[in-house]
Simulated assay, not measured.
Amino acid sequence: MLSDWELWACADQVLKTHGENAPLHVAEQIGVLALARDEAGIATWKAIAQRVAELMGKDGPNQLQ
């Protein structure tokens, strides 16, 4: 599992790369990993998903500065 700092950095990068589509990208990654039965990967992407949701908040993307 990645460190908390690494998870936040991943979430920030997903937002920078995918913007408003970040949640869709995360869901796609989790889906691919579910098909591969990669439990560790799923857990990692779920943790990233939580952070993406927190960074997006109510007003849309809000990347770390």
Rank of each mutant, 00 (worst) to 15 (best):
V14P: 00
E6S: 07
A9M: 13
Q65W: 04
A36V: 02
Q63H: 06
C10I: 07
I42R: 06
E6L: 13
G19K: 15
K58F: 08
P23C: 05
E54L: 15
M56K: 14
M1Y: 05
Q50M: 14
G41F: 04
R37E: 00
A27H: 02
I30K: 11
W5R: 12
D59H: 11
E54Y: 11
S3N: 02
I30P: 00
A40K: 01
L55G: 01
L24Y: 14
Q29G: 00
P23I: 01
G31F: 03
N62E: 03
E28A: 08
L33G: 00
A22V: 11
L15D: 00
E20R: 15
H25W: 15
K58W: 10
G31T: 01
D38Q: 09
G57R: 09
A36C: 05
P23L: 02
S3L: 08
Q63P: 05
V52K: 11
H25Y: 14
A22C: 11
L15V: 08
G19P: 02
D12M: 11
V52E: 03
A11V: 12
A22G: 05
P61I: 15
R51P: 00
Q65R: 09
A47M: 08
L24I: 06
Q50E: 12
L55I: 04
L64R: 13
Q29C: 13
L64H: 09
Q65C: 04
V26I: 08
Q29Y: 00
V32Q: 13
K58M: 07
V52G: 01
D59Y: 08
A34R: 07
M56H: 13
E6H: 05
E54R: 13
V32S: 12
R37G: 00
I30L: 11
E20G: 15
N21T: 12
Q63K: 10
G57L: 04
L2D: 06
D4H: 09
T17E: 08
R51K: 15
L33A: 07
A47I: 07
G31R: 04
A43I: 04
G41I: 03
I48A: 09
G19R: 15
W45K: 09
A43P: 02
G41K: 02
A11K: 09
A43E: 06
E54D: 08
D59A: 11
W5C: 02
E28K: 03
L15S: 01
E39K: 05
S3Q: 10
